[in-house]
Amino acid sequence: MNSFRRTTLRLALGATLAAAMGAAPVVVCAQTAAPVSAYPGKPIRFVVPYPAGGGADFIGRAIGTQLSQAWGVPVVVENKPGASGITGNDIVAKSAPDGYTVLIGITAMIQTPALYAKLPYDVVKDFAPVSQLALSADLFVVPRDAPAKSLPEFVALAKNNPGKYNYGNYGNGTSSHLHGEQLKMKAGVDLAAIPYKGAAPLVNDVLGGQLASAFIDVSSANPYLKSDRFRILAITGIQRHPAVPDVPTFAELGYSGFESNGWFGAFVAAGTPKPIVDKLSAEIRRIVRSPELNGRLTAMGLRPVGGTPDELAGVIARDMPMWTRIIKDARISLD
């Protein structure tokens, strides 16, 4: 038995003995043997597994700034991009379970296990959910001069002209790609997938009319939602988006399998004491729901959430099998 396991066992036995004797046990963090009441007592690190300037980076820095102000400790944001977020995720999965290393993750966390044959961590076992921060969605769009005025019309055109139409996505293995393949399977249409390295160049080509259709995340399309630069035929998720209330969901149009939203979430390493997770979660929820950050997220086209650890765990348990099924049915692999 290594020293860490012996320390953990002694702490657990000590707490049990104290309870049996009628004394109130002191909750401690096994890794540091420091009382949870002392948390936070040193700088906190936010790991963003994507480049600076994206949605996860913005959210991490916005929350980090307010968390630092509220708790009086530095919050350092580190961008660790690479391998669809796997590089940064792995750093947090292998960090000390003490609440001082926080992951700002996205939906890709629960998609990559089916896209890669082997990951250096287990998404379910190696992370402790803290809070779902915000929801996103993908818009299915066509150029403004496209003949299709609705999703049924687009499907009809694609069926009558096999091989003629394509759809752009913001990267292989992304939600945009998976939604495109799902549409192909559900509608029985032949659409060529055109992958881009990110949403920005995808949006540019949609605006330029260089694609027959595309799946674009709502935050990337946000500056153009009120314009006539493209036509939105449908949106993913279970409810319409307040910024485009006239756009129906895929479910409303008779297409199942598009119910899951994209999301941003906060995680720590599995094994982090529950009182620390709960304290961190409560403060992050307060920040996300504050008028300042709530307004900034809404202005980005996102839907602020600020959920509990159990609520985020429930989202993962519900959505992960759905993404896995889509990936396997479409035979998508990134290995």
Rank of each mutant, 00 (worst) to 15 (best):
residue 277 V to F: 00
residue 24 A to N: 12
residue 121 Y to E: 07
residue 264 F to Q: 12
residue 81 P to A: 05
residue 123 V to I: 09
residue 277 V to N: 12
residue 310 D to K: 06
residue 321 P to Y: 01
residue 114 A to L: 01
residue 42 K to D: 11
residue 330 A to D: 03
residue 267 F to K: 04
residue 111 Q to M: 15
residue 267 F to P: 00
residue 94 K to P: 02
residue 18 A to V: 01
residue 97 P to W: 03
residue 88 G to F: 11
residue 18 A to C: 05
residue 14 G to D: 03
residue 253 L to W: 11
residue 35 P to C: 03
residue 137 A to K: 05
residue 210 Q to K: 15
residue 328 K to E: 14
residue 282 A to C: 02
residue 327 I to D: 09
residue 314 G to M: 00
residue 230 F to L: 09
residue 294 N to V: 10
residue 87 T to Y: 11
residue 12 A to Q: 06
residue 125 K to Y: 06
residue 68 S to F: 06
residue 335 D to C: 00
residue 153 E to Y: 07
residue 144 R to Q: 12
residue 30 A to P: 12
residue 177 H to K: 02
residue 182 Q to V: 00
residue 15 A to P: 05
residue 268 V to K: 05
residue 208 G to F: 11
residue 273 P to G: 11
residue 16 T to I: 10
residue 225 L to A: 08
residue 27 V to F: 08
residue 56 A to Y: 09
residue 299 A to V: 04
residue 183 L to K: 08
residue 119 L to R: 10
residue 118 K to W: 10
residue 106 I to C: 15
residue 262 G to Y: 08
residue 60 G to P: 08
residue 311 E to I: 05
residue 157 L to K: 06
residue 153 E to D: 14
residue 132 Q to W: 11
residue 178 L to V: 01
residue 141 V to L: 05
residue 185 M to I: 08
residue 149 K to G: 10
residue 113 P to A: 01
residue 143 P to H: 09
residue 43 P to C: 03
residue 246 D to H: 15
residue 171 G to Q: 04
residue 36 V to C: 07
residue 84 S to Y: 12
residue 281 S to K: 06
residue 54 G to F: 09
residue 97 P to I: 03
residue 187 A to Q: 05
residue 260 S to G: 10
residue 249 T to I: 02
residue 66 Q to R: 15
residue 202 L to A: 01
residue 28 V to M: 10
residue 91 I to A: 11
residue 80 K to A: 14
residue 135 L to V: 04
residue 316 I to W: 10
residue 64 G to M: 01
residue 132 Q to R: 15
residue 333 S to Y: 10
residue 41 G to Y: 15
residue 245 P to S: 12
residue 232 I to V: 14
residue 306 G to Y: 00
residue 100 Y to H: 15
residue 132 Q to G: 14
residue 261 N to W: 14
